[in-house]
Design a protein around this nucleic acid. Structure first.
Lengths: 135, 135
DNA sequence: ATAAAGTCTATAGTAACTATAGAGTCAACA
DNA sequence: TGTTGACTCTATAGTTACTATAGACTTTAT
């Protein structure tokens, strides 16, 4: 199949597929006489694996590592587990940050009556006074 | 004060300060005879305001808007409130996504006994079978 | 035969910085 | 006075994971 069909099947853009090839996540496929990329079912599986990993927010570099590990089936798998575990920690950390962010933003939002002028706006006042506090 | 001192006081890097100037978040300060930037207390306040907004994950473009609004004290402040509220929604959305991500990652992590080979690794098997399922 | 749709490569843009090179400035010390 | 070292200057490139564009070529359909 040509790149457009692969793109449709995987819900990836054509450019993204070419980008993954350039980044060595997908190996360069054969070409047609007219120099078009020709993919097979194995490319499709590989690309879907990559997409699956991306939905878990794994970086391209991590995915590259996973792909390399997959091709050495008899070595220890600790590194796979470590990668996932450290990812979980990062996600948890980010959730904490965002929760605290949300609280602050809600607090800010409540200080604005929403029908006054900029001068009276509690949000800007709060942002400014926080600055003063820190100085 | 020179840029290095401002950087220390605000815990910003020197490059970041110059970057904010280029992006019109800080106005270009006066220069010394030797062409060094010279800042005053007002620059310091402005930069701390920016930092405060950045800790709330406001984008530079949003901060630029806030700064512009601040210089028109008598107009309505709805836009400030709307910006913050839409930000809150984005944050909430992202928290939801990350929580679902965390669940999936935990599930994956539990499928790995951590003392086998790549071939036996539950994580990779799971990632691969999810792919198959989607095909 | 021609038009439309798809594909090709190469390049630039995105956000918010960070890092580097190469040159100039300034204060202190010998 | 000369020189060292710390600081600053501009301009440019790199980061991540794409997205968008230009200009040329190939294929398909009418």
């Amino acid at each position: 199949m040509k790149i457009g069909e692969l793109a449709k099947l995987t819900d990836c853009s054509v450019q993204t597929i070419r980008y993954y090839e350039k980044e060595q996540l997908l190996k360069s496929p054969e070409r047609s006489e007219g120099n078009f990329r020709l993919y097979n079912k194995s490319s499709l599986k590989q690309l879907m694996f990559i997409k699956q990993c991306r939905t878990l927010d794994l970086t391209l570099s991590e995915i590259r590592q996973l792909l390399e590990l997959q091709s050495s089936p008899s070595i220890q798998c600790n590194s796979v587990n470590n990668m996932i575990d450290s990812h979980i920690q990062q996600v948890e950390q980010r959730i904490k940050e965002l929760n605290s962010l949300k609280e602050q933003l809600n607090y800010l939002s409540n200080t604005c009556s929403n029908n006054g002028t900029i001068e009276q706006c509690g949000i800007l006042q709060k942002l400014t006074s926080d600055v003063a506090k820190n100085v």
